[in-house]
């Protein structure tokens, strides 16, 4: 318990450090839109003060405020749950933008991650049981190849074959805009239909890695004394398989939980390729348009997710492995 609290404290401090770092890094990037807008206003004949007021109304910042002051104002707003307003989508709160985008990313990546993990686990265990046979050779080769191909390549191939050559699946967006949003069958079906290709692209990029790690984990478990003893004790094949799978998951568990943390950032390519209005899409468009508040908030979210996932992995691991428990 003590340890958990301490770890959580460390996680919070790390999130604060990352927030600070991104705040200053972003301001070091060339192409400041507020400065540009401010200059435009001045050229249109406004006085410096009018322009500053105008900028404040539009963007919620004072153009000539020292960076350090901006930072403290930002932190103050942050702890009050105010992430600022978007510069590009004028006046819209950043929090709202994120909340609108997050479900799609969450849906897409958690589906992709779960499916690829289950496929990888099954294949890995099968391969470990049949090691050094053609099943092993074939599966391991295929898994290595898919592991090596980045998901934007698989995504592109899927896009070309299944929307252009054989237009079996829709292209763009995550649901049909003509259907009313809500928990209705047509809407859910539409989302599922639109999600097939992007999820498949994610799965094809990720299952190979899971297969290979499961294989090595399962092979180690197969060499353990208790697997030999299980047979001697007359346990059924199903029971022995159960022991094998449970013990093989252990070393993969940390990686799996960390992937949950990385998933917000991991979908940038797929989301922009399939034009899905998720977080990855938001990050990408905010970055190209220098939408500071949005960039700031999404970057923070991405790193916080990784840090929190790390914390969760540490804490949860000791729950699933009795040997780590005190």
């Amino acid at each position: 318990m003590m340890r958990t609290i301490r770890r959580f404290g460390v996680a919070v401090v790390m999130i604060w450090m990352v927030t600070t770092l991104t705040f200053f890094l972003i301001r070091l990037m060339p192409g400041n839109p507020i400065a540009t807008a401010y200059q435009t206003l001045l050229q249109q004949g406004m006085t410096a003060q009018q322009a500053a007021v105008q900028i404040h109304i539009l963007y919620d910042v004072y153009p000539n405020q020292p960076v350090l002051t901006q930072y403290f104002v930002y932190l103050w707003n942050l702890v009050h749950g105010n992430l600022g307003t978007s510069i590009v989508y004028t006046g819209r709160p950043v929090l709202g933008l994120i909340l609108a985008a997050a479900p799609w990313t969450l849906l897409l990546v958690s589906m992709g991650l779960l499916i690829s993990f289950v496929i990888g686990l099954l294949l890995g265990v099968i391969v470990a049981i049949h090691r050094d046979t053609w099943i092993d050779n074939l599966t391991s080769q295929v898994a290595s190849v898919f592991h090596g191909v980045p998901n934007y390549i698989t995504g592109f191939i899927f896009l070309y074959f299944f929307t252009v050559m054989w237009p079996w699946f829709p292209f763009g967006n995550i649901y049909n805009p003509s259907i009313a949003v809500g928990l209705t069958f047509p809407f859910v079906a539409s989302v599922a239909y639109h999600a097939v290709l992007p999820v498949a692209a994610y799965v094809f990029g990720a299952f190979g890695g899971w297969t290979l790690s499961t294989k090595s984990a399962a092979m180690a478990v197969l060499g353990d004394d208790f697997m030999m003893a299980d047979k001697i004790r007359g346990l059924t094949s199903a029971q022995r398989l159960d022991h094998l799978v449970n013990n093989s998951i252990l070393p993969l568990f940390t990686g799996f939980v960390l992937s949950l943390g990385f998933m917000f950032g991991g979908s940038v390519f797929i989301e922009s390729m399939f034009s899905i209005p998720g977080l990855g899409y938001l990050v990408q468009s905010a970055t190209t348009q220098r939408d500071y508040p949005v960039m700031q908030a999404t970057f923070m979210l991405l790193s916080a997710a990784v840090i929190l996932a790390n914390f969760a992995a540490d804490t949860l691991y000791s729950r699933i492995d009795p040997r780590i428990r005190n």
Binding site: D224, D225, F226, R233, L235, T236, H243, N246, R323
Partner: peptide, 28 residues
């Protein structure tokens, strides 16, 4: 039956002894 050299290594590390006995009951 067998008494193994390092008995704790011959038991599934993730289950309590009782759970392993119940499993044995099911298997047999």
């Amino acid at each position: 039956s067998v008494v193994f050299q390092a008995s704790q290594n011959t038991l599934n590390p993730l289950q309590r002894i009782e759970a392993q006995i119940r499993e044995l009951a099911r298997a047999h």
